[in-house]
């Protein structure tokens, strides 16, 4: 076990643990945001850079500070390490910069996005006050495409976290989509029209931190927060059958996995609670389910504080000015 201090809070973790996971052990404010790392998908992390933290002391043995901010999701802890997240001005500033980078080519179509209200990028942009864009250039655009008949990809919204690629690699037997091209032209694609046809492919939707991958069977064309999330289960031979139903009245609009406060699927029976495509896409009738009861969602700050509309509408205005 090694001891590490994050934002003045001490915690003891196993050797080899990452800074991010040590922070999650503490919980609360000290936890850095993670847009690409996903603890249930080995190999993820390191790409988005939103989880950057300051290492004020490298270790007990070598207490020198690290010159650069480090990606907490992929940096292992050292005994005696001192980390600053919320307490670091530098972190705040640079995280704001990362959020700005992630937003410059983002379409700001939150009003019509399925993810609105559960989007980490939206939360971050609110938190970092990205009300005004300094980006005056033309935005990168792609047409939405179908990845199979159940999943739609809005590449414009994608932040290239690579999570969906890892889902396809790790949960399905054949990967048909991936990252194509390079640099700012990188895109998630199947290259040619090809159906993603696999029992677990739908989990891509759940891991996507933004609204880039969406459920085509989702019938509600309005705000997620009008829906009531209900825990439910069914006897399924492919997955645990433990899901979340998003209901309006008596109707099921959408089925997802149950997610924890970091937006990751919760464990069910000791294993990550990925759900199968049958549960997700086919079972839209209340008879299919045993409804357990409502679930209080720790909705991300933006909605719970009722501040959803204001920051975004501001920015929309500024952008239309800038583009003239």
């Amino acid at each position: 076990m090694v001891k590490i201090t994050i934002d003045n809070v001490q915690v003891e973790v196993e050797e080899g643990t990452t800074i991010l996971n040590a922070a999650r052990k503490i919980g609360g404010e000290v936890v850095p945001p993670a847009m690409c790392y996903y603890s249930k998908l080995p190999g993820t992390g390191g790409k988005c850079r939103t989880c950057l933290v300051e290492v004020a002391a490298g270790s007990e043995k070598d207490p020198r500070p690290m010159p650069k901010l480090v990606a907490s999701c992929s940096t292992p802890v050292m005994d005696g390490m001192v980390v600053k997240n919320k307490t670091s001005e530098r972190v705040h500033e640079n995280r704001g910069a990362i959020v700005e980078f992630l937003l410059i080519n983002h379409p700001l179509d939150c009003p019509v996005c399925d993810q609105a209200g559960e989007c980490h990028l939206q939360d971050l942009s609110y938190e970092h006050g990205a009300e005004k864009t300094r980006y005056e250039e033309e935005r990168r655009t792609f047409d939405p495409i179908d990845i199979g008949d159940k999943i739609k990809l809005h590449m414009n919204r994608c932040i290239l976290c690579y999570r969906c690629v890892h889902v396809a690699d790790q949960l399905t037997d054949k990967r048909v989509h991936g990252v194509l091209n390079r640099g700012e032209h990188s895109e998630i694609s199947t290259y040619i029209e090809k159906a993603v046809d696999n029992d677990f492919s739908g989990n891509m939707i759940d891991v996507c931190p933004v609204g880039a991958l969406t459920d085509k069977t989702f019938r509600f064309k309005s705000r997620v927060w009008f829906l009531k999330p209900m825990e439910a289960s069914c006897a399924c031979d492919k997955c645990s059958g433990n899901v979340l139903l998003w209901m309006f009245g008596n109707e099921i609009y959408r089925v997802t996995a149950r997610k924890d406060k970091y937006g990751e699927v919760e464990d069910q029976n000791g294993k990550p609670g990925w759900i199968c495509n049958t549960c997700r896409f086919e079972k839209k009738s209340p008879e299919n389910w045993k409804i357990i009861g409502p679930r209080t969602i720790n909705r991300h700050s933006v909605i719970s504080q009722g501040k959803y509309i204001s920051p975004r509408s501001n920015s929309t205005k500024n952008i239309s000015n800038g583009n003239k």
Partner: peptide
Amino acid sequence: IEPIEVYEVASFYT
């Protein structure tokens, strides 16, 4: 290997 792995590589190298 899967075709996508070839597409990924071929589209990366200019």
